[in-house]
Each structure stands twice: as structure tokens, then as C-alpha cells.
């Protein structure tokens, strides 16, 4: 039994303090995961709060034999984001909230804005599932097995989607692609402030 399962078991037997340990271990990860999908600190806070409240309420239903606590709490987060956009009645497919998030985002700083622009330009070229898998693998450092548990599907299908996503990114963002030129200019402008013509 891993540490998570141990603390979940203690929590299920009535030791609410054990949930504090799980919270400390997963707060940053869940917050980031939600933030990457919403690009708004305010919304990310609301959804993160919702995720942990749900996790605490449903902790009794968690079954360690069916998967890890990590995958379970990420799934709650994923569903909460979908619910958030469903209540906003967006016209885009609920699974594909990335574009809406970019348009609606509240940017905290100019630096963050620049970084987000570059990142989102990269990732916008992918479909929603590929984008989610790549961010979970590269940014969130989740294993393929965990990603499969979070997004649904087999480990092999996750690996396949990841590989295709990388291939598509390489094809669209090759050395001479307009996107790469755009990214390169962005990087240069941040290094050389005197290029700022404003």
C-alpha cells in the first residue's frame, strides 16, 4: 500500500486530519492542472476548492483496488472543470475548453501573458485530448498509466495520442514555420527589451 492509500484508509476510518496530508500533497498539482485549463487564478481557486470539498465528501467511496488516489482526485478536477464550463453554457464542445479559456482568461501579469500566448499558440494546434495528455505528461509529470486513469482509455491509447501530438507539433512548429518564428520573436523581445517599439 502506498502512502496515499495509507492516508486515505486513515481518513476513511474517521481521521479527518489525514486528509490534510493528502491536501498538502495534491493542492499545487490540482491547482496547476485546473489553471492550465482555465488560465484564471480566480476560477482556478473556485474549482480547486470545489475539487477538495468533493474529494473529502466522497472519500468513503474511494476504492484503492480500482485505482490510485492521484488519478481519482485528478478525475474529480477534470470533471469539475467540465462542469464549470457547462454552467457557463459555452457553445464549444465541453471537452474542449482550451479555446474558451484563452479568450476568457484573466492575465495576472504581462510576463505571464507573454508566456501564455506562446504556450497556447503551441498547444492550440492540437486536439483537446492530445493537448491534455501532453500537458499532463510534460508539465504535470504524470505517468502514462495515471494519465490513462485520468482521461479514460488504455495506457497504449494514451501513448499513441502523446506520440501523435508530438509529431503534429513538430510538423506545425518546425524550424521555419510561422509559429516558430512568432515564438522566437517573443523570446527575443523578452531578452532584448529595447526592441519594444511601444
Amino acid at each position: 500500500m502506498d502512502d496515499d492509500a495509507l492516508y486515505v484508509a486513515r481518513c476513511q476510518s474517521g481521521e479527518t486530519d489525514a486528509f490534510g496530508v493528502l491536501y498538502d500533497a495534491y493542492f499545487d498539482k490540482i491547482y496547476r492542472f485546473v489553471y492550465y485549463k482555465t488560465f484564471s487564478a480566480e476560477v482556478a481557486e473556485d474549482i480547486t476548492s470545489d475539487v477538495f470539498h468533493k474529494a473529502l465528501q466522497k472519500i468513503q467511496s474511494f476504492d484503492a483496488e480500482k485505482g490510485t488516489f492521484s488519478a481519482w482526485v485528478y478525475r474529480i478536477a477534470r470533471n469539475s472543470v467540465i462542469d464549470y464550463y457547462r454552467t457557463k453554457q459555452t457553445v464549444v464542445p465541453i471537452e474542449d475548453v482550451f479555446d474558451v479559456a484563452v479568450d476568457d482568461r484573466t492575465v495576472e501579469s504581462l510576463d505571464a501573458h507573454a508566456t501564455l500566448t506562446k504556450v497556447t499558440e503551441y498547444l492550440k494546434t492540437l486536439n483537446a485530448k492530445q493537448r491534455e495528455i501532453i500537458t499532463l505528461r510534460i508539465w504535470e509529470e504524470r505517468s502514462y498509466k495515471e494519465i490513462a486513469e485520468i482521461v479514460g482509455g488504455s495506457e497504449d491509447s494514451v501513448k499513441m495520442a502523446f506520440s501523435r501530438g508530438i509529431r503534429e507539433l513538430r510538423e506545425r512548429c518546425g524550424p521555419l514555420s510561422p509559429l516558430m518564428l512568432f515564438v522566437a520573436c517573443g523570446l527575443a523581445s523578452s531578452v532584448l527589451p529595447f526592441f519594444d517599439i511601444s
Partner: peptide
């Protein structure tokens, strides 16, 4: 992708 990972802190 690795270097441009947004720095997010709650």
C-alpha cells in the same frame, strides 16, 4: 515545452 511551462503559484 519544458522551459515554457507556465509558472503557476496559488
Amino acid at each position: 515545452l519544458l522551459t515554457e511551462k507556465p509558472v503557476v503559484a496559488a
